[in-house]
């Protein structure tokens, strides 16, 4: 007989015991470990899903922020552009104003300088003109003209013109007669003769030559002076002309 029934019963019992042993030492712990691992994996998957969701939300938020930033940047760029344009416009206006002020100042200075230059030029020209005229007259003054001057001078003394009388009436010890050219003896005698009625006793006449005097005669006596010369006329005329020029330039400047 191939089947031994007591052995069958033993084997059934053994198999049941083996089921219990394996359930205790194999299936239970293994299933528990697998469940624990699955739980951890599920937790990690959930964490990953949450992290992904967070990342998606973060991406959305960043995208939104980026868009807002782009809009703000556009607005800021526009604002900055407007500010720059305004600043440029103001700066140009300010610069234009400064340039105008400077130009006006320069023009004013230039006008002043030009006027001063013209004034100086005029004075120089007139001075030179009169200097040349004086020089020309002095150069043209020959013996005949000097004789005529002495004659005219003698006539003036004889006529006791104003000024001469004051000089000659002074109680000076001496009278000085200064001429701008040399006198010949005849001329000295002529002058001594016309002056003699005015001279007290003991008073003398001294003749002296001074080239600076030019074409003229000067009488000096005890601090009194009477003079006639061509240069004086020329100087007076020059002064009058300068005065007239100043008056004209002042009127032009006021315009």
């Amino acid at each position: 007989m191939l089947i031994d029934w007591p052995t069958v019963i033993f084997q059934i019992i053994n198999f049941l015991i083996l089921i219990a042993l394996l359930k205790r030492f194999l299936y239970g712990p293994i299933i528990k470990a697998m469940d624990e691992r699955e739980r951890k994996v599920a937790a990690r998957l959930a964490e990953a899903a949450k992290a992904e969701e967070d990342a998606v939300q973060r991406v959305a938020a960043l995208t939104k922020e980026q868009e807002a930033f782009a809009v703000a940047r556009e607005e800021r760029m526009l604002q900055v552009g407007q500010e720059v344009e305004k600043w440029k416009h103001d700066a140009l206006l300010r610069l234009q104003s400064e340039i105008d002020e400077k130009r006006e100042g320069w023009n004013s200075i230039l006008d002043s300088e030009q006027e001063a230059f013209l004034q100086k030029l005029k004075q120089l020209v007139s001075r030179n003109v009169f200097r040349i005229a004086r020089k020309a007259l002095a150069d043209l003054a020959d013996d005949e003209l000097e004789a005529r001057l002495i004659n005219t001078f003698s006539v003036k003394i004889a006529n006791k013109e104003e000024g001469i009388a004051a000089v000659l009436s002074a109680s000076a010890a001496a009278v000085k007669c200064i001429t701008g050219f040399p006198l010949v003896e005849a001329q000295k005698e002529q002058l001594t003769e016309v002056l003699s009625p005015y001279l007290n006793d003991g008073r003398e006449i001294f003749f002296r030559e001074e080239n600076d005097l030019g074409f003229g005669v000067r009488l000096l006596s005890d601090g009194q002076k009477w003079e006639w010369n061509l240069n004086r006329y020329m100087f007076e005329m020059e002064a009058d002309i300068h005065k007239a020029m100043n008056t004209l330039s002042g009127a032009h400047h006021e315009k």
């Binding site: 053994n14 030492f25 194999l26």
Partner: peptide
């Protein structure tokens, strides 16, 4: 039969215990 069954049971139980005493999760 019984003796070899016991042997197999012992080996399976011992092996199971050795494997599952330090399980990693």
């Amino acid at each position: 039969t019984i003796l070899f069954t016991w042997l197999v049971m012992a080996l399976l139980t011992l092996g199971s215990w050795l494997v599952t005493r330090r399980l990693s999760t």
